[in-house]
Amino acid sequence: MSEETPVTEGTVSGSGPADGGQGDAGGQHKLVGVVLVSHSAAVAASVAELAAGLAGGGATAPVAAAGGTEDGGLGTSSELIAAAAAGVDRGAGVALLADLGSAVLTVKALLAEGDELPDGARLVDAPFVEGAVAAVVTASAGADLDAVEAAAVEAYTYRKV
């Protein structure tokens, strides 16, 4: 479901993300991946679809849903989360958003483990739907992980009344 993004393997080896965050020759830089972790497979998949849809017609950042348990029930699967994170990792970091309870705790426990999620994977403290849209739109614009996180977190400040 996530469009392939241009990956310039090797061009930034040893130097990390491009200095300044943008302006690589030809606009070829690695996009931050986004993983959406929900207790429900349907919720995770739908929010991923919504966020990618709202990110516009161009190449969107890689987004993956990790919802429910492996047998399709409500809950959290560390395997699905690890697989989703590996699947969207383009070397620029991965932002993980989680809905509640075990989804949040499982991501935290995996991050503490140190080797089950890609380097640069980070739990982002954001509202699930609004934060996902903000994260995917920002990541699709080529922003770095800090900027993607900031955009998702900022979604908490948008009041509706």
């Binding site: 348990t69 029930g73 809950g75 959290t76 699967s77 560390s78 395997e79 309870g101 075990s102 705790l105 499982t106 935290k108 426990a109 995996l110 503490a112 483990e113």
Partner: peptide, 18 residues
């Protein structure tokens, strides 16, 4: 602990796993 994190499926997995 690692096994509990991957198999429990609820909040007790990461908590007891940790």
């Amino acid at each position: 602990g690692r096994q509990l994190i991957s198999t429990v499926g609820g909040a007790s997995g990461p908590l007891y796993g940790t």
